[in-house]
Design a protein around this nucleic acid. Sequence first.
DNA 1: ATGACAACCTGTGGGC
DNA 2: TGCCCACAGGTTGTCA
Length: 269
Amino acid sequence: MPELPEVETTRRGILPHSDGQSITAIVVRDSRLRWPVPENLSAQFSGAHITAVRRRAKYLLIDTSRGVLLCHLGMSGSLRVVVSTEVPRKHDHIDIVLSNGKALRYHDPRRFGCVLPLDETNQALLQHLGPEPLDDVFDGEHLYARSRGRKTPVKTFLMDGRIVVGVGNIYANEALYAAGIRPTRAAGQVSLVRYQALADAVKQVLAKAITQGGTTLRDFVGGEGKPGYFAQELSVYGRGGEPCRTCGRTLFDTQINKRATVFCRYCQR
DNA sequence: ATGACAACCTGTGGGC
DNA sequence: TGCCCACAGGTTGTCA
């Protein structure tokens, strides 16, 4: 589930507990993630000093003196701080054990995520990624320029990580509503002015979600185990059939490329 | 290059 | 209570 705000919430949650610590071991209970967790992961990182915890797109990057640990939460993952002696629960696949007696516990029922050392075999994952949505280089002109001639729905275009990273299904729905753009519209048929509104909406909705600790739909918890509170702010996602908060008409529920899509047929054109 | 879709996997909720 | 189906926050790879 985690989109950019949830990953950023996780980063901020684990940072105070992990920055400046060293890794004493990495305990792998189940290595069957999206890509198998390497056998030698613990050997590589045991004794490593953590120097930073960064985020790029929806990847968490743990910088250490022995290299970078790359972590993705997939659809159902979480990474939270626990006391290392706490009994692991189902789907608690990995513990990154720290020198302060705590551990970063990776939990992921669907196992779509990954925990890997960043090396030459997988660094391609970070190449070809578009700009960060909260960076200044991401703006309406960027969206406009990249979308000319594209027939794909603007929602699909907005969720393409090569165009801009971190905008997943929830926030794509929300940003398009805020900008008054119908998600089904061809990306190449949206004007510069409207893309400027969209870029602003993306920044605003993501920034607000980060301040709320992300969106918890089922069981997302941030680095300190707390749920996010943005769900109550959602205008359209999960509200199909309910009244539009702007005009009161019934929100239309559909699918675009198999992804739940909700919009107001009156407010979004 | 583009766009549509299947695949990866488990859990949950609705309908009957 | 149980069974079956549809669906769920992401990304990659394949195919036409």
